[in-house]
Design a protein around this nucleic acid. Structure first.
Lengths: 352, 352
DNA sequence: GATGCCCGTGTGAACGATCAAATCCTAGCG
DNA sequence: CGCTAGGATTTGATCGTTCACACGGGCATC
């Protein structure tokens, strides 16, 4: 019979423990870990030996209290709307966690009321629970950025400051973003290369900054190839059925043979519509989605898609974070990354 | 022209600030927040008014140092293997974050070397960075559980202790799990109800505890209905193409009209195979997947799937966590939740 | 040989909260 | 009117670390 609760939360050693054992003072041990250069080599070695022997790790709370730095980064973790691309966030978050650890930080998740984009930030700030934030939903008009700036709280953003980009306004914060326009352009050029001339755009409502940015890439590519776009730009809500029906309507009117979509969800809607009309994706009508989600990989016959370098986004964000927290001058406040095109059978004439 | 860095990290008020302003001592303010019952009503009101006015929130570091409790819960965030169900974790994590906040805890993410399931835990423990852990990958044989127990670290697990369940061993920790066998049974019974008698099982290698548990549900349901299962249980790796080919092989040999799959990935593989053979899912051959992933919702014509109550799992875990941290006796150390069946067209004779 | 400097190390205080115990206040009672 | 019980409030110490500065010895300078 085992003890129901043999809980002896093993007491970790403290600085004093190590100091006594190594025959030096607390401060010397502290220096050995934080500024090794200050110690004489032999002292350093002796101290580090004891540290290793006892498995000493500084108490985070004590350090945080004294230095006023928690070495924690706050990230508001939104609930993925049912049906939206969430695997996207997954890749991003994992990379963020891993990269942050490399500069000695951990990621703290928090949630907030969906209707109030500022909820949660304030409390963490006041309790000095985090050193900085990673803001991911700047597309919505970004009240967070303004709020954090007014509070003097360091942060980095995944998403460019749409509002006053280049306006010289107050929006000069550190950000990283992916060039969606370029992605859509790659997709469009790819379809044109495959011999399509009437390539349609399937996007979101006009109010979406991100959506319009991507759309502009389609327009640019079409214009460059000399193909007209009149009547080929369609807007709908982000779900499979809405896309499916929009495609049916469009195909009744015009002989479209290519679709560039603002999301994989819409791309999959296109595939469904084609299937219902007896058209073979790729061979007869080319389709490209956006985000390279799980669905794109698994759907039949494989949906070509624009893939965002989310891992790289996280890496760049952490790099910026490091600078911001180090109070170093950040000259390059914005970093734009380029997406790539993943070609699958939905956009290939030959299915080889 | 704006100041490049107007960073005045606004200094939050401390206990002393509030105390002075309210004309009481620090301790009284502390009591007002932690044990309001000790104060006289009028004093309490006065103190709380000042707290609200100044927007005071206790400094987490100081509190953590003194009470030896960080109010943080560690969660190792694994990278989703490309192609695996990750949206699954998304729902779970969000619910965990939200529920934890309700008992005053935040979720701290950390990563670790993929090959070493213990990596990361030790450091957080020694630095007293977290109060407890939520362990999610107990299926692998769970060295984490044994390790955490030996360190006297509180934790709760998503996943039952397979190894010595009921063996009276050391594995009596708090856990929550989903009854996969029951889920597979629901799926099988549903197909039988639809008139199928030769229902196959498409699963993972025998080494997977979870996979075998689910399979047992299929066997039970088939036996209960009096249908033989000989030759109908197929094992493969978890990817679309492997499943597709396995299905082709099986259909060459036997007239199967139903498939219960251990994952949506395999379920989608079945749909692909049917499509290639000109068979209509649902109408001719019934298919049910597992996990109700995004792919299941988006794939044509909609894949029926067993849905795990992940939000509820998180809620139950937090409840257990609360008990474990409160040092209260936890009588019900294990909680088993039941999944539900989401029926879509892939398993319905009538597509209405 | 005294002065000044630098380098490595040690000492006391401080960060902001809570714990334990002392002190104050008020009411009740003989 | 004094004494006490008991609740309300304050005081001093403490958690483990880092900061600011003091200290002492060795070396170069004059």
């Amino acid at each position: 019979m085992s003890q129901p609760s043999g809980r002896h939360p093993v007491v970790p050693p403290t600085l004093a423990t190590v100091a006594e054992r190594a025959g030096v003072s607390r401060q010397t041990v502290s220096n050995a870990l934080n500024s090794p250069g200050l110690l004489r080599p032999d002292t350093l070695e002796r101290v580090l030996a004891v540290v290793a022997e006892l498995g000493y790790t500084p108490n985070r709370a004590a350090r945080q209290l004294r230095t006023r730095a928690s070495r924690l980064v706050g990230l508001r973790f939104e609930a993925a709307q049912e049906g939206a691309s969430s695997a996207l966030l997954d890749r991003f978050v994992h990379s963020l966690v891993e990269t942050s650890e490399r500069i000695g930080h951990h990621v703290l998740l928090f949630s907030g009321d969906e209707d109030d984009p500022l909820d949660g930030y304030d409390e963490l700030l006041r309790s000095t629970a985090v050193d900085a934030f990673v803001v991911t939903d700047t597309y919505a008009g970004t009240p967070q950025a303004a709020f954090l700036q007014s509070r003097g709280a360091p942060f980095v953003a995944f998403g460019r400051p749409w509002d006053d980009l280049g306006a010289g306004g107050a929006s000069d914060w550190a950000w990283v973003d992916v060039d969606g326009g370029h992605g859509a352009r790659l997709a469009t050029e790819h379809l044109i290369e495959q011999g399509h001339t009437r390539v349609a755009w399937l996007g979101w409502e006009r109010s979406s900054r991100i959506g319009e940015d991507r759309r502009s890439g389609w327009e640019t590519a079409m214009a460059a190839a000399g193909h007209p776009v009149a009547g080929l730009g369609v807007r709908t809500t982000d779900n499979v059925d809405a896309a499916r029906m929009a495609v049916h309507r469009l195909l009744e009117e015009r002989p479209v043979t290519g679709f560039v979509c603002v999301s994989d969800t819409l791309g999959i809607g296109v595939l469904h519509a084609l299937q219902e009309r007896g058209l073979t994706p790729g061979k007869e009508v080319g389709v490209v989605g956006f985000d390279d989600s799980l669905g794109a990989q698994m759907v039949w016959p494989g949906l070509s898609s624009v893939r965002q370098p989310l891992e790289q986004v996280a890496v760049e964000l952490v790099t910026l974070l490091h600078l911001v927290l180090g109070d170093k001058p950040v000259d390059d406040r914005g970093t734009m990354l380029q997406p790539t095109l993943v070609v699958r059978r939905s956009s290939r004439r030959d299915w080889a």
